[in-house]
């Protein structure tokens, strides 16, 4: 019986001491934190992608509340919706954020294209690109070892069975991580709703490209002549499309029909139906 009382007493005393100590410490060491920071952190998408330039969502939430020079529209994955809310909460002015989506600018999966050499090293594009810019005959094309897939914070990129990345446009937030990490800059960020994109990013001369690729942009300029709005320029052997002009003016994508190599890709079928 005596031991039982001792047990209860000791447990009680230790529990009490620590309870009081913790309660006291909680008051004494309390940190005043602006509740707004937490509210804003909740609004942010929490991909921790760093597209805003801060290390993680919490750091950005802190900066945008405490520093009045930090703009409220830096969160690219959050799109206009989040920018508007953050601006409202912090009392800042938000510019319009353009929503972007990642696009793979290569049509030839690594598993099915001509190779310069057999690569059996580390399964990573960055490592493979150190050897003559990758094993593919086209040194500008997709290496297909999935570096973009691994770096996507939103799980939006999957390699298909031939090793070409497929972007899930529903999941892609346009943070631009894949664009940053791709050694051959095959990944490009284009505005959501863009009509047409050139799915070749090789700067080799047209005749050379034809030897190793089934669907290259040979820089012939037919699309440039066909486009009535002047949205296409030929630069470094590639057709470069100004998507904003397209989205504003175009209702008949003739460039896609005229392209002799099918290197221009129509992204929105409904554009054609409009006319």
């Amino acid at each position: 019986m005596e031991i039982f009382i001792k047990m209860v007493a000791l447990m009680g005393v230790i529990g009490l001491v620590f309870g009081v100590l913790l309660a006291f410490a909680n008051k004494k060491f309390a940190i005043e934190m602006n509740p707004l920071i937490h509210t804003i952190e909740e609004i942010l998408p929490k991909g921790q992608c760093g597209a805003c330039g801060f290390p993680g969502c919490q750091a950005y939430a802190e900066a945008v509340v405490l520093d009045k020079d930090v703009a409220p529209d830096l969160c690219i994955p959050g799109k206009a919706e989040v920018a508007r809310k953050v601006a409202e909460l912090t009392g800042k002015q938000a510019d319009v954020v353009e929503s972007r989506v990642a696009k793979v600018r290569c049509s030839q999966p690594a598993g099915k294209s001509k190779l310069k050499y057999d690569y059996s090293g580390i399964k990573d594009c960055l490592a493979a690109s150190l050897l003559q810019q990758g094993p593919k005959a086209c040194k500008y094309g997709c290496i297909g070892l999935g570096t973009c897939e691994r770096h996507c914070p939103f799980d939006a990129i999957k390699l298909n069975e031939d090793g070409l990345p497929i972007v899930d446009e529903k999941k892609c937030t346009g943070c631009g991580k894949c664009e940053e990490v791709c050694p051959n800059h095959v990944m490009a960020m284009i505005p959501i709703g863009a009509h047409v994109e050139n799915i070749c990013s090789s700067h080799d001369p047209g005749a050379v490209k034809r030897k190793y690729c089934a669907q290259p942009c040979i820089g012939c300029g037919i699309c440039k002549k066909a486009c009535p709005h002047g949205a296409i320029e030929i630069a470094n052997g590639l057709a470069v499309i100004d998507k904003h002009i397209c989205m504003e003016k175009c209702d008949d994508p003739v460039c896609v029909d005229k392209c002799p190599t099918k290197s221009l890709q129509l992204l929105r079928e409904e554009v054609r139906n409009k006319s």
């Binding site: 447990m11 230790i14 620590f18």
Partner: peptide, 15 residues
């Protein structure tokens, strides 16, 4: 009990 409460305390002090 000791370890858990001590860690709590330490966390507050460090914070």
């Amino acid at each position: 009990l000791l370890v858990a409460s001590f860690v709590q305390l330490l966390e507050m002090v460090i914070k």
